[in-house]
């Protein structure tokens, strides 16, 4: 007789036990189980191998698997902790946990810094900031002249680079975010608190009680 809730279906590469993931993140065991339902959906949308490929990530964000976007690339790269070109379940849960409403603001601020430190130098440099502004303009309907872009980047740099050495370090970033808290808005997904409601099928599949 078949059993649809068997562990067999969960032997996908990179699968990690929800109890362990819950102990290391802001999620409860039930929430990790619900995230597995979301993960299964995302990781089977193009290639059904239990791993999220970049095309699948892009498809989930834009409903278009070919849409290139600097920021989606950055998020994917940070989620792909092992740097093997795919997001495994454990990586997915640990990275999404940064966006949980209960996660300390300091973790969110550090993640955002890494996101914007395009060349992994430990600093956000002016050139990187300009590159990101241009990428944003490229993906939106906004048209700004190069002079206006230069002014925006200059003003931001003067404001953020309090030491005046031409680059923004983590300490300056923390101070800048404290003065501009709206910058952290997209680092919290209220949805993650309701994830068990969004993916209730985990209740059928759940192997662990919270």
């Amino acid at each position: 007789m078949g059993c649809f809730c068997s562990k067999h279906s969960r032997q996908t590469p990179g699968y990690e036990e929800p109890t362990i993931l819950a102990s290391e993140t802001s999620f409860t065991v039930s929430e990790v189980e619900a995230l597995y339902e979301l993960f299964k959906k995302l990781s089977s949308s193009i290639i059904d191998d239990g791993l999220i490929h970049k095309e699948e990530f892009q498809f989930a964000l834009f409903r278009n698997s070919n849409k290139r976007n600097l920021f989606a690339d950055r998020i994917f790269d940070l989620f792909d902790v092992k740097r093997n070109g795919v997001i495994e379940f454990g990586e997915f849960v640990r990275s999404l946990s940064v966006f949980h409403p209960n996660t300390p603001q300091s973790d969110k601020i550090a993640f955002a810094f890494r996101l914007y430190d395009l060349r992994y130098t430990g600093y956000i440099e002016r050139e990187e900031l300009k590159e990101m502004v241009l990428a944003l303009l490229n993906e939106s309907d906004l048209i700004l002249s190069d002079d206006v872009v230069e002014t925006i980047v200059d003003k931001t740099f003067i404001d953020a680079d309090s030491k005046g050495d031409g680059k923004i370090d983590m300490e300056e970033w923390k101070e800048f975010v404290a003065r501009n808290p709206s910058l952290m808005k997209n680092m919290t997904l209220p949805y993650l608190k309701d994830i068990t409601l969004a993916f209730p099928s985990f209740v059928v599949n759940s192997e662990v009680e919270d």
């Binding site: 834009f62 976007n69 920021f71 989606a72 690339d73 998020i75 914007y116 990101m132 925006i152 997904l189």
Partner: peptide
């Protein structure tokens, strides 16, 4: 209005940073 924003505010409006799309059915 965008010209008055700081660069990071502008960047944070990117669709690529809006992960709530991942949860859309």
């Amino acid at each position: 209005k965008p010209a008055a924003m700081n660069a990071f505010e502008l960047i944070s409006t990117s669709q690529g940073l809006n992960l709530s799309s991942l949860f859309e059915k």
